[in-house]
Design a protein around this nucleic acid. Structure first.
Length: 230
DNA sequence: AACCAGGAGACAT
DNA sequence: ATGTCTCATGGT
């Protein structure tokens, strides 16, 4: 019997055994991770890739280049990722922030501009950066030990009966954090990436019953009707 | 042809 | 404080 908050360690082990290490985030530079974090908001990653490819082709994958670019030029690059007008504004806001912090030509140096809580607070003040985006930047761009919670994480935990469907971000984050060793960046990186993999695979929002749970052996999701592989 | 995707901000209640 | 609406493209 699992505890009320859920056995995240067990889940992590199951997912790791099934898919192996994910080695996220798929990007070449820290800045590219930050850009991706904005562009992937409520958007399929395949669409984000197209937008990033356009940015690269236009040589707009740097803070100075984006801040110097024209409105229409940037919108054209972001178009395939959806919400392109909103995201143009958000991406500019992030770049303006990085410049203010003195990180324009070395975005990963943001890491040295404060403690984790301080950096998180700073990021949350940036227009277009919410909790998940802030944590994604902290973990995947700055390699700081903080757990990212997303829609998949919430859905999976809900269907396992580990949390109520109305839990807040911070609450779920604390629950997972409490099961991880404090400074373990790699564990947080892998766990979130694996949860996305599980979510992307077969865990669709409005499908109540389990079809093909990707966790074959040792998986007791299927015994209940809250299988995350629904 | 609807449904969905690695959210966040504005706004009303 | 807590819901609801809007933003938009591309794949299934």
């Amino acid at each position: 019997m699992k505890q009320q908050t859920g056995d995240w360690t067990w889940l992590h082990q199951q997912l790791l055994a099934h898919w192996g290490a994910q080695h996220w985030w798929p990007a070449e530079t820290s800045f590219e991770v930050m850009v991706g974090a904005i562009l992937t908001q409520n958007t399929a990653w395949t669409n984000v890739e197209k937008a990033i490819a356009r940015l690269r082709a236009a040589e707009l994958l740097s803070v100075p280049a984006i801040l110097a670019s024209g409105e229409m030029e940037l919108e054209t690059c972001l178009h395939p990722s959806g919400y392109y007008r909103v995201k143009t504004r958000r991406l500019r806001a992030l770049c303006a922030f990085l410049r203010e912090e003195g990180c324009a030509d070395l975005p990963e140096s943001l890491r040295d501009k404060g403690t984790i809580p301080e950096l998180r607070a700073k990021l949350l003040r940036v227009h277009g950066v919410g909790e998940e985006t802030a944590d994604s930047i902290l973990l995947y761009a700055l390699h700081l030990p903080i757990m990212v919670v997303d829609a998949y994480t919430k859905r999976i935990a809900t269907r396992l009966g580990w949390i109520a469907d109305n839990v807040k971000y911070a609450s779920l984050q604390r629950a997972i954090e409490s099961t991880l060793s404090p400074g373990d960046v790699a564990a947080r990186n892998e766990l979130h990436a694996l949860l996305v993999e599980l979510g992307k695979g077969t865990c669709r929002p409005r499908r109540p019953l389990c079809r093909q749970c990707p966790l074959v052996e040792g998986c007791d999701f299927g015994r209940t009707q809250e299988c995350p592989g629904n």
